[in-house]
Design a protein around this nucleic acid. Sequence first.
RNA 1: GAGCCGGUAGCUCAGCUGGUAGAGCAACGGACUUUUAAUCCGUAGGUCCUGGGUUCGAUCCCCAGCCGGCUCACCA
Length: 540
Amino acid sequence: MSQQTWQDREGGQRAASPSPHTSDGSGESEESHLLRTRRQKLESLRERGIEPFAYRFDRTHPSSRALAGFEDAEAEGRLDDEGRGERVRVAGRIVSWRGHGRSAFAHLEDGYGRIQLYFRLNVLGQERFEDLELLDLGDWLGLEGPVFRTRTGEVTVLVESWTLLSKSLRPLPRGKEEVDAETGERVVHSGFADVQSRYRQRYADLAVNPEVREVFRVRARVVRSLRDFLDDRDYLEVETPILQPLYGGAAARPFTTHHNALDMKLYLRIADELYLKRLIVGGMERVYEVGKDFRNEGIDRSHNPEFTMLEFYEAFADYRDMMTLVEQMLERAAREATGSPVVTYQGTEIDFSPPFRRVSFVEALNQALGRDLHEMTDEELRDRAREEGVEERLEGMGRGRLMDKLFGALVEEELVDPTFVVDYPVELSPLAKPHREDARLTERFELFVAGRELANAFSELNDPLDQRARFLGQVQLREAGDDETHPVDEDYLRAMEYGMPPTGGVGIGVDRLVMLLADQPSIRDVILFPTLRPEEGQGE
RNA sequence: GAGCCGGUAGCUCAGCUGGUAGAGCAACGGACUUUUAAUCCGUAGGUCCUGGGUUCGAUCCCCAGCCGGCUCACCA
């Protein structure tokens, strides 16, 4: 928003009828005015010999400890004659300011909370008190002084000296808030609410909305809990390629990129699966990986193009063993993230206490269809999918995908409490072992919670001949027009030919788990920097 | 992708049947040495998302587009 642009406009028809509020070429936007004012303060600070960007500060007390320390001292009668507790050195960002002539109150926010500051002319001296005029909301300050309690009862640092740690040159989009005297609720009078801006400028969102920081603390606890759970069971954490010459392990469209030196096309992985199972072949009996997968598909409140997946594989286990593991793992994650296995998600209680409900894929779908799936032709399935409002082009879609679409349309949203859907049709699961009792099915389960898929697992297919046949079946589907089929991976087949033990494997969508445990409605709320269209003038 | 809702000051939002915009907070100047949504006096700040159209006149009505949110459908 340059001055030039403004003048160009003023030169147009508007100039014919100038209003008293229209500036005459010296005009600048409010935003640039705010920025300019702060830069001028920065210059003034330097002129007064104050370095606006410090190197370090010795903090003795996080705000929370300064508050607690004073209250302890007060309770134990350790305050001095003037009612003051120990001297503290605190540091943080100025988030409110109330000037009173020869004194001023402010609030300082740090990573542990907030504490009030009290500045007085006769404590700081004329010069240092006047320097305060060059401070702004958002500045980082280090302060030293004794802690006391004000007449209105708030524990406060009486500032005896202060150091500017970093000058803020851009005002934070901070609103005002108060606590309702009657209800005790926090009322935000205005704030940083524009969803797009909050994701785009997550730094400002975090700075202004403390509850957002808490979401990401929960996220860290969840991920640590998952790792601890597996580490406790002698799993080894590994890292496998993100850049892959061939993608696989899921039905999804990949991102592609290019390596210049090798002059070759590379894919960003859509799943960790095939590499982790190669490790099982190699004798690493229990492995897991937490990392980003990338799928070149739509974005909505439960899908981000890059997302975090946990996959773990255990030799000598089958999918029933893995169900038990998943139950235990999620119960622990819920407890460690929220303190209870029962969490409230968007107003609905969800209980992660084992055992989870189990329903058969075919039975659940048969019930929803009112017919036996196995007696329906592909064409009947397609017609039914169309009736149920599946709006995709169904023509090239194989039988498996049709069933999956129908299941998604008819059954998934009913699955609120953690529910294992078990024994998927073989067409849907090219990497899963055939069911030991019904060759039309595979030993596979998906876990649904709150109507969304949270985990996917199977008794891993370890017969290389069967695996090759399944891959070839996928090729046929691709030729029929399905663009989310699994490609043939010869290297993976070679690995399996060396001999792969029976193995149970699980994939868990970590972002979605965090959504549940942090009670967040959108995946973007649990990803610090979600994928967004670039701002104007950036990117392509 | 479809439907609904929205885009006005740095932030949060008003703006009547069409007469070229207001408030609170933030900012700036002033008063105020225990305030806490501090208060009081004053000042400044706008491509009303973009482009067309209708009209004497459009923030407002019409059309198209861009961006976002929600709901529905789908890939974890």
